[in-house]
């Protein structure tokens, strides 16, 4: 792929990730439990990694985290999304080449679990209250559900991008 095209695609994916991230932050929490949310922006991290590789996926992620914090505000919110996003990124980076694309949803679930574990760690650290760690159980359960959802969404998005012909 030509480098100009690569940069354009990175920028487009970062814009999509940011839009999804900001839109999701406007939706009231579905389940009244701290930390349970869909994590739709992880779809873009995963798709960027499959299409463009690990390095570009990291660029897309960092752009989304920094601009996302600027739009939705708050340093503590940034710490959370950064801890979750980077933990999910690391898991994806290690596993994306291990699994066939048919099992991309497995990578997505494991990434969602890492995302939630990272967020619980930051929550324990920020509040200095060990009792928060009990949330890991419900966040593991919610990570399975949201990970399957974002994984299947990633598979569909990959298919749509490939058949659209913009990669050629």
């Amino acid at each position: 792929m030509k480098s100009s095209k690569r940069i354009a695609l990175c920028a487009a994916l970062a814009a999509v990730a940011l839009t999804i991230f900001v839109a999701e932050s406007q939706i009231p929490p579905i389940v009244p439990i701290a930390g349970v949310k869909l994590g739709l922006a992880n779809i873009v991290t995963l798709v960027a990694m499959v299409l463009l590789g690990r390095r570009d996926a990291l660029i897309v992620l960092v752009v989304r985290l920094v601009l996302g914090a600027a739009f939705t505000g708050g340093f503590s919110a940034f710490m959370f999304s950064a801890a979750g996003g980077l933990a999910a990124y690391l898991v994806m980076a290690v596993l994306v080449s291990v699994f066939p694309e048919k099992l991309l949803w497995v990578v997505s679930v494991l990434a969602a679990l890492a995302h939630n574990a990272g967020q619980v760690l930051v929550a324990v650290f920020v509040t200095s209250t060990p009792g928060i760690a009990y949330y890991i159980f419900i966040l593991a359960a919610s990570g399975v559900v949201t990970g399957v959802f974002t994984g299947v969404a990633s598979i569909f998005l990959l298919r749509a991008i490939r058949s659209s012909g913009i990669l050629k």
Binding site: L103, V106, V109, L113, Y134, F137, I138, L139, A140, A141, S142, V144, V145, G147, V148
Partner: peptide, 17 residues
């Protein structure tokens, strides 16, 4: 394998919570 593992994580997580 993954379906069974993730189902178990889901059920145990909810139950423990």
């Amino acid at each position: 394998f993954w379906v069974i593992l993730f189902s178990a994580v889901f059920v145990i997580g909810i139950a423990a919570f």
